[in-house]
């Protein structure tokens, strides 16, 4: 990255992308490798980011799975509390609208007004919408007929349970919005998340993760890199 390429505050935000957020810690790739993110407007390198591989995915998934453990703070949280967190995330995106707009504009090349007037406000709407859902996710009670016990009375019901660790693989065309569209419903239902942003556009997610971390602990493991191994190996749960 060339000195003086960006204003100092933007420069600081970009610097966040040099690390991934996994299990509440900012870390580089285990291999120590990095790769460059280019500015599509002039071809210059914006920043070098960690080049994660399967080992980093294992680490992130293990962190997300640990955060999903029964009895842990995330699983014990009431739906109301989960909704409030997602609402707070919406506030954070709104408060950081200009910074997030600048970052997605820099690494995706899209005009900043597209971010200001579509991607960011839409992201806020998505978060606020899903913030209302945790208290409304219901199962059914069902009047069953059980032939082997005719005349018996039963209490039969269904539960909608979170699936567990969700992998969110995001493209480069609407970097922030596409990530939030996956993040918000996954959090609303009580899942934990591993995000892999596109290799072309990882910077805004790093800022989002940093702002979350600075305000409260969301159990999100963000892996901000190009995982070259991903195409060949499946994301698998960590070995115990």
């Amino acid at each position: 990255m060339t000195d003086g390429q960006f204003a100092p505050t933007v420069h600081d935000d970009i610097e966040l992308a040099r690390k991934m957020l996994i299990g509440g810690e900012w870390v580089g790739a285990i291999s120590g490798k990095t790769f460059p993110v280019y500015d599509p407007a002039d071809g210059r390198v914006i920043v070098e980011v960690p080049a994660g591989d399967a080992a980093d995915v294992d680490r992130a998934v293990a962190a997300a799975r640990a955060a999903f453990a029964p009895g842990g703070p995330w699983r014990s949280m009431t739906p109301q509390a989960r909704g409030k967190l997602i609402w707070k995330l919406a506030d954070l995106v709104e408060q950081n609208a200009e910074r997030l707009s600048m970052l997605d504009s820099i690494d995706s090349g899209k005009p900043i007004n597209e971010m200001r007037f579509f991607d960011v406000p839409f992201s806020v709407d998505v978060l606020r919408y899903y913030a209302g859902w945790p208290t409304k996710i219901t199962g059914d009670t069902i009047p069953i007929s059980y032939p082997a016990a005719s005349g018996g009375r039963f209490h039969a019901y269904t539960l909608k349970e979170p699936v567990g660790v969700v992998g969110a693989i995001v493209p480069w065309n609407l970097p922030l919005l596409m990530a939030i569209k996956k993040l918000a419903p996954a959090l609303a239902t009580g899942c934990t998340v591993v995000i892999k942003p596109a290799k072309q556009t990882p910077i805004s997610i790093a800022l989002l993760a940093w702002r979350c971390e600075g305000s409260f602990t969301l159990n999100i493991a963000v892996i901000g890199s190009n995982i070259t191994g991903l195409k060949r190996t499946r994301i698998r749960p960590p070995t115990a």
């Binding site: 699983r75 009431t78 739906p79 945790p134 208290t135 219901t138 059914d140 009670t141 069902i142 009047p143």
Partner: peptide
């Protein structure tokens, strides 16, 4: 007659 008749609500664990 077997339509689900009610909901299971998530209040707290």
């Amino acid at each position: 007659v077997n339509l689900p008749v009610g909901e299971v609500l998530d209040i707290q664990p």
